[in-house]
Design a protein around this nucleic acid. Structure first.
Lengths: 207, 207
DNA sequence: ATAGGGATTGACTCGCGAGTCAACTCAGTG
DNA sequence: CACTGAGTTGACTCGCGAGTCAATCCCTAT
């Protein structure tokens, strides 16, 4: 069935199929046969390219997460105000979801929100992201842009938690999603965490 | 081995053992035999009291979650300012964790953060909590206490996401935990989401 | 005392699905 | 054209663990 193909292309083909299957059925629920079928490839070939079912999930996660870490590092290296930096981070994550919802769904649902199931694999990698965000907050606190009532780590968790929860809302249809919502969310997440919900004189209040 | 006992007591005994086992090994990783052993009870007895392994998890989740929903409803029914209401919600969740970390760990790690694995069971129950929080926000927006730049649902997700992420940080030792941290967290989560991170004239800035 | 029946036991069944492997295909090479 | 080895196939193995069930125990009622 499957035509001969260069190793890397076939690898990608299986990886992409796995993303679709994981997103649709979930990692635990799907069988390796489902991935092979989706890729239009024989069962055994999956094991020719990957050592195990779990390794496939690892690749999907690491491939994307490393990109994100790099982006956050670049953002933090710039000298924009912290709020703009956080907007950059939120924006990148939202755009990632817009661009490829399946990949983000798999990463969040099967890895990020499931750090236990796999005996805490990836916990360190995930923690790197928290640390980078905490870094941004710490710098802002030093500059007086953010108040220092909370520890940077704590703020980072709150910020990331808010983003992930919104993404989760989109994934499970608990929150309306679409291009309009994506664009608004980018700013609103930051506005909520930085500006707060309180009606302040500084922000244009309703009444 | 196990002495005769009234039905409900035995039920509790198995349920409590399951909480410890789920917290220690994770729902998927543990075997039903582990639960029976932990409870000091024969394998088959578990199935005398529960229809399936999953039903045990269901009970653990629902038992606690329903209490929380009730508490949130009561809080919202009062006429305290929204910030105090949210502090009540955050406080209850933090206290729940302090009081019985294992139960909260199981609920968060195996149910709340794993709403996919079980084919979206409980998603509705979980959503009820979001809705109740959104309710609080909506009221506050009507009263002008909160600005209405964000939808109540969105704010609820951000708020709940922040709490859950902090709990997750404690569970996985990504964030320092202890009585001092618990007490501080109650206020800080709300302060972060309501007051924001920004250094404002209203709050006592650092510099 | 003794029958009845719920509580308790744990060996056994049974299906599932990850991972293996021996056979086959075929593009490239000399 | 024979030969090689990477690419490909899918039937098979094998361990695991959820759920079953017939036997046994022991409390309670008569």
């Amino acid at each position: 069935m499957a035509q001969r193909m260069a190793g890397e292309d076939r690898r990608r083909q299986i990886l992409d199929a796995a993303v679709r299957v994981f997103a649709r059925q979930g990692f635990h629920t799907c069988r390796v046969a489902d991935i092979a079928d989706e890729a239009g490839v024989a069962y055994g070939l999956v094991y020719h390219y990957f050592g195990s079912k779990e390794e496939i999930l690892d690749r999907i996660f690491l491939e994307r997460w490393n990109v994100m870490l790099e982006v956050i590092r670049e953002i933090d290296a710039g000298d924009a105000p912290a709020r703009a930096k956080l907007e950059g981070v939120a924006g990148f994550i939202v755009e990632s979801y817009r661009h490829d919802p399946d990949v983000m769904k798999v990463i969040i649902v099967e890895v990020t929100r499931a750090a236990n199931s796999f005996g805490r694999t990836h916990l360190e990698k995930i923690g790197e992201a928290y640390d980078l965000i905490a870094q941004i907050v710490a710098h802002a606190q030093e500059d007086g842009e953010f108040k220092d009532t909370v520890t940077p780590k704590f703020a980072a968790m709150a910020f990331y938690g808010a983003i992930e929860q919104v993404l989760t809302g989109w994934i499970f249809d608990l929150l309306p999603s679409g291009d309009v919502e994506f664009d608004r969310a980018k700013g609103l997440i930051v506005e909520t965490v930085c500006g707060g919900l309180d009606a302040t004189p500084a922000s244009a209040g309703t009444v």
